[in-house]
Amino acid sequence: MPDALELLKTRRSVSAFLLGDPAPSDADIRQMIEIAARVPDHGKLTPWRFILYRREQGERLSELLMPLYHARFPNAEAQRVEQERGRFSRSPVTIGVISKAATHAKIPEWEQFLSAGASTMNLVLAAHALGFAAQWVSDWCADDVAASALLGAGPGERFVGFVHIGTPKEKPLDRPRPAVDEVLSNWSEAR
């Protein structure tokens, strides 16, 4: 297991198409969710939850989602349609992260939504720490009300995204990252 700083320095997304077996075990998944839940959560609202999708459920999910996809994207190219058909079969495991942000007297919804995002990032980091790789995606089904309902979102809930998890089929390459001086500035009253 890499040390914490090395883990953070080496984490990178790996396309779901490049994630294979072995899949995380049930114990691995439970540990990832425990880690994903250790995020700032003002008011202890737990404004997020998780849904597990296994590769073997992908075909059934495709049967349910493809009519919605075709209705929304009637002119989609054949290659894109085939990619969409395999959305939940690409990686061994996909975990949907749902925001349950709701009106609260003291805690704004946007803060609750950020907590769900932090939870999603912790999930990605946990996968990396356990020797797996992950890709956090959203795409159309995260915003489509009917698709979200089919995937398990309830009224007032919204998908933050879907985290594909598996073992990389090849060593992932890093991409250029911004230089610190490009993204960090010192505060100054006069601008």
Rank of each mutant, 00 (worst) to 15 (best):
A142Q: 01
E170Y: 10
A179L: 14
A76H: 12
G161D: 07
L52M: 00
D41I: 06
L45T: 01
E63L: 11
P168M: 08
F159A: 04
S99G: 10
V39F: 02
W48D: 03
V14P: 02
I51G: 06
V137G: 08
S188H: 13
A190T: 15
L123T: 07
G156P: 01
L5C: 10
L184F: 12
S15V: 05
R38Y: 04
S15W: 10
L5A: 14
D26A: 15
I95V: 13
E84D: 06
W140N: 02
P178G: 04
M121T: 12
A153M: 04
E189V: 08
L130K: 13
A105M: 09
D143Q: 12
E189A: 15
S138H: 10
I35S: 15
L65T: 11
A4P: 13
F159H: 01
A127M: 06
A23C: 03
R30V: 05
Y53V: 03
P24N: 05
R54I: 03
G117H: 05
R55T: 04
L45Q: 05
A37H: 08
T94E: 11
V183C: 06
A190G: 14
N75Y: 09
E170F: 14
G156Y: 04
M32W: 04
R80H: 14
V39Q: 07
R177T: 01
S13D: 09
R85V: 06
L61A: 03
W110K: 06
A142Y: 02
P47L: 06
A71Q: 15
G131L: 12
H104F: 10
S25M: 08
T46C: 02
V39I: 15
S148L: 01
N75I: 00
K171G: 03
R158S: 14
R49V: 06
I35V: 14
G20R: 01
P168E: 11
A27T: 09
D3F: 09
T10H: 13
K100A: 11
M1F: 09
R177A: 11
R175E: 13
I107L: 00
W187H: 07
P172C: 11
A16S: 15
P24H: 05
L52S: 01
S115I: 01
D26G: 08
A78T: 03
S148Y: 03
L150I: 14
K9W: 02
P74M: 07
T103D: 15
D21K: 01
D181P: 06
A149G: 02
K171Y: 05
A126D: 04
A27K: 06
A179G: 08
I33Y: 05
R60H: 08
N186Y: 08
